[in-house]
Design a protein around this nucleic acid. Structure first.
Lengths: 218, 218
DNA sequence: GCGACTTTGTTCCTGCGTTCACAAGCGGTT
DNA sequence: AACCGCTTGTGAACGCAGGAACAAAGTCGC
């Protein structure tokens, strides 16, 4: 019994991932203890907010001392579900897909790509990061064999929805989408959208708002 | 007079960018009118929320009819400040940087890279997307000459802060950071963080939360 | 062994974002 | 010319996230 999971807010989860990264760095550097203030500074957040985030996973610090780096790191990793490396599949091996497949950061953060897929015949068979690019026909097979629960879409926008359909049909329950379209996924499937253009446009707006006095329409 | 800019919430700005993309697609498809319901569905948001977002830029629809696609598109583009193409510089031409430099989506969304930079001598001189990779020494010069106000960082984490310092010193006011570190920028500089590992870890958490019954620590 | 300092964990409060629901306005129709 | 239906725009309530201040607790020093 005792299910200490009174639902953690999604915003907190995102920050926990950041804390985890900072803690891993500290652990590699040989540090054994941190205070909330230092950790918050390194993560770019408010100390009080950090303590509140951490409180969601129960008391894990020592008053007057701080947090034990390795212990806290492991606890966050367990809560996030990345203690063990999780199998992912990646669809769309263009420029972005290649970059993702090669990105070492994923491996050290608890994720590994167990399948790279592309529809273009001339891309199939190439090796990226020690792995071959497979044809889409092998998708179901690989997902089933590896029990991959996370799919990453890095295809052009016009095929993203059909790729999403195929991934969910194959059993993938979580999707990270880089294509600039809103995906329609069945209930029970989590979709997260990363839109690079949107980020730039928000910056453009902030910059314009800061710079110009006004001078609108009419 | 009349500065109809009663500060638009940042969350709204991000969605406006999405609406803009959908509207551009509709315009290319020859559509001339849309209702809030249809637009909201395509953007993956609530219809009422969409109307409230749009209300921030003044009345721009016709009751009983809907929104005129081209007009609304242009108005959003003007508010976001992307009517004219904005010059950006990109630092770090590894796998991710190459993908970003090659990404056609930026060009059609009002951004163009006017300078690609890397510290590694063997990368300098290569051409990507019709542009040469320049040495870091030319950064100030290019930023000054092109009046680039947006900088994109796609370097390893350990040099991201120093790159950030150099960009801000050169006059860049907005930074999009792909390196997994919290950047420390002077006041007046907007920083936006995109962390690919964090997105995956949030998905891992959601997936684990959904799947397992419980079975925590002790 | 006791006191004081440091740091966590929690509580309150303020503000924002989101959602629902209604009223206003325009076009088409009779 | 007047009515009816459809869609926008706005007002209000709900819930959530963020920040600051306070109390609890453990450790170090004397």
């Amino acid at each position: 019994m005792s299910s200490p999971r009174p639902r953690i807010p999604e915003a907190t989860v995102a920050r926990l991932a950041v804390y985890l990264r900072v803690l891993s760095g500290l652990a590699d550097g040989g540090r054994s203890n941190v205070s909330s203030g230092e950790l918050a500074s390194a993560a770019g957040v408010n100390p009080a907010g950090l303590r509140k985030d951490l409180s969601h996973l129960g008391p894990c610090g020592v008053r007057g001392v701080g947090y034990e780096v390795a212990t806290l790191r492991d606890r966050i990793a367990r809560v996030l579900g990345v203690e063990r490396s999780r199998p992912c599949v990646l669809v769309g091996i263009g420029n972005l897909g290649t970059a993702l497949a090669d990105y070492a950061g994923f491996g050290s953060r608890g994720f590994r790509f167990v399948g790279l897929f592309d529809a273009a015949p001339d891309r199939v068979g190439r090796r990226i990061g020690g792995q071959p690019v497979r044809p889409m026909a092998e998708l179901d097979e690989v997902v089933a064999a590896t029990a991959a629960s996370i799919g990453v879409i890095a295809t052009p926008a016009d095929v993203a929805q059909s790729v999403c359909d195929r991934l969910t049909a194959a059993g993938v329950r979580s999707i990270l989408n880089f294509a600039p379209v809103a995906l329609n996924a069945p209930a029970g499937v989590d979709v997260r959208q990363v839109d690079l253009s949107v980020e730039l446009q928000v910056l453009a707006f902030l910059g314009q708002q800061r710079g110009a006095t006004v001078e609108v329409t009419a």
